[in-house]
Design a protein around this nucleic acid. Structure first.
Length: 592
RNA sequence: GCACCUAUAGUUCAAUGGAUAGAACACCGGCCUCCGGAGCCGGCGAUCUGGGUUCGACUCCCGGUGGGUGCACCA
């Protein structure tokens, strides 16, 4: 029997093929393999229960037969034990020998990555994030797209996807009309602004919008400025370009601090000459039609997008003044990603408020590509809930403004510095600063990742910087602690040979080994649901399982095989913890 | 008004239709001459409400209640 990597998949396949050869089963049988409660085993096959029910046979007896067949079908009893429980659950438990061999087989980051790369084997995937805005200072609303997007991209890449990380910059919207109007009205010379340009632009836009609310006739001026921009008017284009450059620089600084990487930045403006083709095609195939002067797509089969609604909500792909909007550019973007990147999958990361937009985008794209004979990439919208303050309302400053990202990160650093100084007063200040930098940013990221993204979560400095509980500091500490075990051994070398390690033996060793091999299933789940919190939950549990082991079983003992296997468990825990943290976009520390 | 999301211990979060609903914080009680005490072990304590489907429901369906969000020319 091989040392399987994807254990659930192998068990599922083995069970299915055993059943195929039995007259008691037909094709409708699905093993339904899943991770089991450790009390019962490592994996469980539950599919016998519903199958027996629909075929009116005794599930327990059926399970007995299936297990007998499996025992004769290549399952090595030295590696894997099968038992039946209750009404017909089949439990699979890997033996200490298998656990130990698995740990020896998947011994490095490279080995894990290589094995995992089969999960998405080269799939060409565009990850659309973090889609920053222009003319706006980075604020807390930009946190989740960066943090969740980076982690999702890393998860996919670890699983072997070939990704293009595309920062789909919001650089072509109606807001430029307002902004240009205000800039001209105030006679502002952007080239004189220097370093404080972005906060000023942010303010100008807010003031401009307010002016429009007070004087509706200004909206026509703004609209005219936007149309001029879209028609390549040199003056407006120059203003626009300056604004975009200022914004990009500010965001690039934040990306660097947050360790967010994108491959390309193809903003909405990039598609300005590509929307006409979309209009033409959608009109030609009869998908788009005029409504109140705008060009729209109705999806009558979905009640809330249908034309006979009380409050109609069509997919508006061209405004009545002829200008494009984000629906136009998003459609052009899908086509570009298909033509240029041969995208097989596109993943969009935005907050929950854009769910309707993406649903309409996906419906429209599907009909459009079907009619024109194009392959349809898998389209996914990865969305999330809001960050709430202690009062359970959206997290804001005391004056009701959005919290600036710069201020948030600075506060994370200074709070982390205070904590690190309290815990490790002996370290030199420069090192405490460096640790605080990492702990602070990691803590903010981890808080954002550790709960199910579709839920709102409550932001609390105290909790996210705590060294107890499911937090970044706790996990970073667990990593540092294991590093220290090895740094004490002969200058970092443990002087033992893993091949000499005997099979895991004590209850706590076995529990830890089983937890470690469970990483693969968790990785798969996180990558297929695009939910990083599965990784967080797992790492936190792993750290706890390790603590129990480390407390119960002394590592540095004289007996060589025992010492070797316990050191191997330490090394592998470290490997999985560090691998997992990196998948979250967090760089582990060696000392803290 | 219509639609979507959501409701789990005192609090913050888990739980691909599976076995006794898990953690952490807080609270209470134990352990250890402890390889980093930023430790280990245990206790207390919860599925908003009413129906339904299912061998099996926190999970799926229907009706309430509370909270959030969205409803074309903003992105």
């Amino acid at each position: 029997m091989d040392i399987w990597f994807d254990l659930a998949k192998e068990i599922d396949a083995l069970t299915a093929s055993a059943a195929v050869e039995m007259e008691e089963f037909d094709e409708s049988f699905a093993p339904d393999t899943r991770m089991a409660d450790p009390r019962f085993g490592d994996y469980q096959v539950n599919g016998v229960l519903p199958y027996a029910k629909s075929n009116r046979t005794n599930p327990r007896a059926l399970a007995e037969k299936l297990v007998a067949r499996l025992r004769g079908a290549g399952i090595d009893p030295e590696y894997l034990e099968l038992t039946i429980a209750g009404p017909g659950f089949i439990n699979f438990t890997f033996t200490p020998r298998f656990l130990t061999d698995w740990l020896k087989r998947y011994a490095s980051g490279e080995a894990l990555r290589e094995a995992a790369s089969a999960l998405r084997g080269g799939r060409r995937t565009v990850v659309d994030f973090p889609s920053a805005n222009t003319a706006k200072q980075p604020h807390i609303g930009h946190l989740r797209p960066m943090v969740i997007g980076e982690s999702v991209a890393r998860l996919l890449e670890f699983c072997g996807a070939q990704t293009v990380r595309d920062n789909h910059l919001g650089d072509w919207g109606t807001n430029f009309g307002t902004l240009i109007m205000k800039i001209k009205q105030d006679g502002i010379r952007l080239e004189d602004l220097g370093a404080d340009a972005l906060p000023l632009l942010d303010r100008l836009y807010k003031e401009g919008s307010q002016l429009e609310r007070d004087n509706p006739e200004l909206r026509d001026i703004s609209r005219a400025e936007l149309v001029k921009l879209q028609n390549s008017d040199p003056e407006n284009t120059a203003i626009w370009q300056t604004i975009v450059d200022i914004s990009k620089k500010a965001f690039e600084r934040i990306f660097a601090e947050m360790d967010v990487r994108t491959d390309v930045t193809l903003g909405e403006s990039f598609y300005r000459d590509k929307v006409q083709r979309v209009y033409d095609e959608l009109i030609e195939i009869g998908l788009a039609e005029e409504s109140d002067g705008a060009l729209v797509v109705w999806h009558d089969e979905v009640p809330r997008f249908s034309r006979d609604n009380e409050r109609p909500n069509p997919f508006n792909i061209r405004k009545k003044d002829g200008a494009s909007n984000y629906a136009s550019t998003d459609l052009a973007t899908v086509l570009y990603r298909l033509d240029e990147f041969q995208a097989e999958e596109i993943i969009y990361l935005t907050d929950s408020r854009q769910r309707d937009h993406f649903q309409q985008l996906f419906l429209t794209t599907r009909k459009w590509f079907e009619k024109t004979g194009r392959p349809l990439p898998d389209l996914h919208h990865v969305w999330w809930g809001a960050i709430l303050g202690p009062d359970k309302k959206p997290f804001k400053t005391k004056s009701g403004e959005a919290v600036q990202l710069r201020e948030l990160l600075d506060e994370a650093r200074s709070r982390a510095f205070a904590v690190v100084t309290e815990k490790s007063p002996g370290l030199p200040e420069s090192e405490r600063r460096a640790i605080a930098e990492s702990v602070g940013i990691s803590a903010v990221k981890y808080a954002d990742l550790s709960s199910n993204r579709t839920q709102d979560y409550v932001f609390s400095w105290e909790r996210l910087l705590s060294f107890d509980g499911n937090t970044a500091p706790y996990l970073l500490y667990a990593v540092a602690r294991i590093h220290s075990i090895f740094s004490k051994l002969d200058g970092g070398k443990d002087g033992t040979d893993e091949a000499a390690a005997s099979p895991v033996e004590t209850e706590t060793e076995i529990a830890l080994a089983r937890k470690l091999i469970g990483f693969v299933s968790v990785l798969k789940q996180a990558a297929s649901d695009l939910r990083p919190h599965f990784i967080c939950t797992y790492l936190f549990e792993l750290a706890g399982t390790f603590s129990s082991f480390y407390n119960a079983d002394r590592v540095l003992v004289d007996d060589a095989p025992t010492r070797a296997r316990r050191l191997m468990l330490c090394r592998r825990t470290l490997l999985i913890l560090e691998t997992g943290l990196r998948l979250l976009g967090i760089t582990p520390l060696k000392r803290m």
